[in-house]
Structures are given as C-alpha cells and as structure tokens.
Design a binder for these strands. Structure first.
Lengths: 252, 252
DNA sequence: CATTCTGGTTAACGCCGTTAACGGTAAACG
DNA sequence: CGTTTACCGTTAACGGCGTTAACCAGAATG
C-alpha cells in the first residue's frame, strides 16, 4: 500500500530493454536504414515477435522512438540555448530555433518521424497523449512565456479569440503544459500556436526539400521568418542584436 | 522528318495504360488502402512485374501519381477561384488558398504524398524535375504575379537579396516557370517563396494533425496566416472585403 | 514446493518490392 | 508477303516486412 515502491528487479530490466529498443532504432535511423521491427530486434539479438512484449504494433514502436528522438533533440536545443544568459530568453529562443532547424536539416528522417508523422484525429488519444507531452513543444512554450514575462508583448484577450480556439487554450491538448499560465493569460497560447506554426512551416519546408536547395543552403527563408516574429514578441527594440545573434548561429 | 507525328497505335495504348495506373492508384488512396505496386496492378487485372514496363521502381510510381494528384487538385483550385472575376486575382487567390487547405484536410494521404514526400537533394534531378513542373506551384505563382500587376506591391530588388537567393530567382528551379517575369522583377519570386512557405506551413501543420484538432476545425490559424499576408501583397485596402470572402469560403 | 507470470523462442501467413526467364503478339522491315 | 524485332504481359522465385499462434524456460510469487 506504500505510495511509490522502489522499482523491482524485473521493472528495471524491462526499462533497460525499452532503452535498448530506442537505442537500436536510433542507430538504424542514423545509419540511413529503414526502421523495422525485425531490424531493431535482430540488432538487439532478439527475434521480431519478442518486441511485441514491449509494443503493441509497429506504429507504437515508431511513436516510442519519435518521442525519445524529440526528447534527445530538445536536449540539444537546450544546450544550444545555454550559451546565452538565463535572463536573456530572447537570445535563447533564437539559438534554440536555429538548433531546431539545424537538427531538421541534418536528420531529415528523424525530423519527419517526429514532426511529419500524421496523427489521425479519430484514433482515440494514445498517440495524441505522447504528442501532448512533446518535449520540444514544451520547451518552446516555456521560452515564449519567459519572453513574455520580460517584454510583456501583447496577446489577445480570451473574448477576442475564436470561441473554439478559446476552448482549446483554456483546456489545452497541445504540447503546452500550461497549468502555470493563468487562465486569463491563456491568450498567450494563441501567440505560441501562431509562432510555432510559422517555425514549423519553414523548417518542414526546408527539411523535406520542397524548395530550391540554394534557398535552403542560404538559410534566408528561415532567417526572414524568424525576423518577422521578433516584433510580435516584443523584441522589436532588440532586433539588431538578435539578428546579429541569429546570423552568427546560422553561420556556425 | 515531320515535326510532330500523330501518335501511333502503340503509343496511344501505352498512354492509356499510364492513365489507368494513375486512376487505379487514386482509387486505392481514396479508399484508404496502401499504395503498392501489387495492389495497383491487381486492380488493373495485371501482375505486379508488368508495371515495371511503365515505372522503374516503386518511388517512380509514387512520383507519377503525386504529379497527377497535384494536377487534379490544381484543377479544383482553379474551379474554386473561377467563382470570382478574372480581373480580381486577390479574390481568386483567397479562394484558391481555401481550396488548397480544404483539399489538404479532406485528403491528407494525398496531400502528404504530394507535399510531404521528401525530395533528396543528391539524387540527380529526375524527381526534382517533376517538382519543378508542379502544377499547383505554377498556378499560385501566376496568381501572385497577376496581383502584383494590379496592386504593385513592393518587392526586394536583386541586390537587396541574399546572393545565393539571387542566383536562385534568376535561374529558378522552383515551381515557377518564371520566364515571363523580367529578370529585374525576379525579386517577386522571393515574395512568392515567402508566402508559399507560410501557406505550406499552416496547411501542412493542419493536414498532418500536429496541432489541437479544435484549432484546425475552427480554421483560425489558417485564417490568421492568410490575413497576415494581405498587407505585404498590397491588399491592405482590400482587407475587409477579402476577409469577408475568406470567411465565406471557409464556412462553405 | 507448486503456481503463475514474463519474456523469449520457432513456424507460419500474407503482404511487399524486385529480378529473372520466358512467351505471345503486334509493329516494322526487307 | 514473310521475317524479324520490340513490346508487353506472364509465372516463379527471393528476401524482407508486420503479425499471429503455439510453445517453453525461468524467475517471481504464493
């Protein structure tokens, strides 16, 4: 009846196997191979059906590694951002965005697994739950909130919002973890969604290659998109500094 | 030595088979089935290896049907736009954008085939050629050009552009077919890329479902993105009318 | 010690893309 | 005209995939 027991031996073993699954899958992706149950299993020295003790089906394996890839990538974004002072969230955001883009361009397969993997609206949550916990989404929301605390950029009040959107920001399903945001301040989430949409847009466009490769290489499209979002986030006065920072990061 | 012969019987037959391939593939997708060589073949009353007389491999089949789906979808955009006067390209663009979104939401599988299908940068053109001919891209470029002719919105001069981007707009690889645009006016293509990136972004986000379903259903994200692009396209004065039009189209 | 649960096995099914070897028939040619 | 050739289809087969069923060793549990 004790609330949380220390993990038993079996549980630790099981957890370790999950980790190994993710590790094997990541290696496969990194090597450019296809992600398949059989390949993952054989890399672990197992047979494919054994994996069914850990995932219900192939899609669940994909979701699992997508979640972990996102987590790992986010760690990278955090590191990139940590070059800048903790009380400078604007700089951190810029750095994180560039890191996000760099990751998407250097690991397009992983990126598309995490961010282009279609989410059916019908299929009763499970997968959506994972999406909701999206680590990267969470991190970007937090950064945006810090920026708001510092710069107090304007955001729509609840009654300016489309009623459906109002419901959505009051009871968010999205990677937000917004409990710490006052309901009256939830209009902020609208700004989050819009800026996330813009970032997601360019990066996906570039990562999937639906764009002149030279434009991707120059980074101009990404750069312009970010710059357009400085003012709405109250960073107009900071623009010169941040653009400089952006260019530095881009040319790294 | 005559320039273009009438197609011989064999050629007509072959062309008809290509059409049937595309038709069979489209039906499969529409029914929610997987697109596979075997399924397409058997639906045509053939065996899979026979298809290799028409495509080199599976990816080429995908590219083929992607191209044709894009073509068919574009026809839909044109029809949606044709509700408005020919000398009102702004209205037509709004209608086409809404039609584009509607298509992406109602046929996510087809959409992702056409627009989320990754294009490797290495693989020596073939596929990129088809992308370059992208029917929808061509249509949106044309609409944008008509809007510019009418409203003369500002665009960057060639020397304001990033040098790499300048090369790209002067010798476009992108779905543009920009021969009719004076080299000195090629800065227009930059506006095209940026607005296309914005449109592509929201629509992909919505179509793949990486977003709160309520926000998708409300259409607010899409609406806001379009509205943001009215002013840069010289449509600020037309905004009230176009927003009304947008809302009408969205609620259809 | 007996029982149950967990995590693995092998075998098999029905898909898939792809290749090779072969054949019939329509077009092209001398 | 007859002959050749090129095209378009076939069947058979390979290896790989996700997935299920039946089975089994061993560890944890009573």
């Amino acid at each position: 009846m004790s609330a949380l027991q220390q993990p038993t031996r079996r549980e630790r073993q099981r957890e370790a196997t999950f980790d190994e699954i993710v590790r094997a899958a990541s290696e496969l992706l990194a090597e450019g191979a296809e992600l398949s149950l059989r390949a993952v299993a054989s890399r672990m020295g197992m047979t494919a059906p054994a994996l069914y003790r850990y995932v219900d089906n192939y899609q669940e394996l994909v979701d699992l590694v997508a979640f972990e890839l996102d987590k790992a990538a986010t760690q990278g974004f955090i590191e990139a951002a940590s070059k800048y002072r903790e009380d400078d969230p604007a700089a951190r955001l810029c750095a994180a965005c560039v890191a996000f883009r760099r990751w998407a361009l250097s690991k397009p397969r992983e990126f598309s697994l995490v961010f282009a993997n279609p989410i059916g609206s019908t299929e009763e949550s499970e997968r959506r739950e994972l999406l909701t916990l999206s680590t990267s989404g969470r991190y970007f929301t937090d950064l945006l909130y810090e920026i708001w605390e510092l710069y107090q950029f304007p955001y729509p009040s609840l009654d300016e919002l489309d009623p459906i959107v109002r419901d959505a920001v009051l009871d968010p399903l999205i990677p937000a973890k917004a409990e710490h945001i006052e309901p009256s301040e939830r209009g902020l989430l609208w700004i989050y969604m819009r800026s996330w949409s813009a970032l997601y847009g360019v990066v996906t466009l570039e990562s999937t290659g639906h764009c002149d490769p030279r434009v991707i290489q120059s980074g101009a499209l990404f750069r312009a998109t970010i710059i357009d979002w400085l003012a709405p986030l109250g960073l107009g006065a900071e623009a010169p500094r941040l653009i400089q920072l952006l260019d530095d990061e881009l040319s790294r």
